[in-house]
Every structure is written in C-alpha cells, then in structure tokens.
Amino acid sequence: MEPDADTSTPGRITRDDVAYVARLARLNLTDSELDGFTGQLADVLDHAADIEALDLDGVASTSHPLPLSNVLRADVPGVGPADEADHRLFCDEVLAAAPAVEESRFRVPPVLGEAP
C-alpha cells in the first residue's frame, strides 16, 4: 500500500484494501465476507466524504472533550493490593482468567517460528 500524503479523499476502498486491513487487524475473512465487508465499508466511507463540503483549513484538531493533563497520584501506598499476600491473591485471580498459564505467567504458542 503506497502512502499518500495529500488529504483529498482517497479512491473507493477496494477488496485488496480490506484484505490488507483485515491482516493488520488479525482477522481472517472468507471470500464472501471480503465481498460483503468491502461494500459496507465503502458505504460508510462514502457517507464520511460529505465533510468534503467543509472548509477545514486552519481548524484545530479535537482528540478529546476535556483538556487532558497528566494525572499523578501522591506517592503513598493506596490503590492496589496492600501487602504481598494480597498481591499474590490478586495475581492468582488474574491468572485464573487466562486461557493458559505456566509458572505464574501467561503461556502462548511459539512467537518466532522454529529454525528451519
């Protein structure tokens, strides 16, 4: 996918675009799903193109309704398990909800393929 620096509305989303995006999002789509989703995503993006009518030059971006600032709590014990025994209990509860666990850690299949 070639990066396109300008901000004009790109061409209609294609089946290949959707397949690429699905891969990025870690989703497997069947051929018929790809067809269906391509049409539906195109419909939504076509509707979004109505903002082309607006002059947005020089308009600031809003990413959040509140003026956000970093929030730091006082550096005193408070939130979270009070002592080591409670901490152990909390970790056990978290691990109990995991699909696979080994020695107090989340267990996953190999991340890197085995060497050929």
Partner: peptide
C-alpha cells in the same frame, strides 16, 4: 493507516472542533 490518516481521522478531528 498510512495514506488515509489525514484524509479520514485527521479531518474528522477537525469536524469535532
């Protein structure tokens, strides 16, 4: 995603303003 961020997400944030 690269190439579409400004056209869609960037513009939408301005509309939000």
């Amino acid at each position: 995603s690269a190439g579409y961020y400004d056209a869609y997400y960037g513009k939408s944030q301005k509309v939000r303003t």
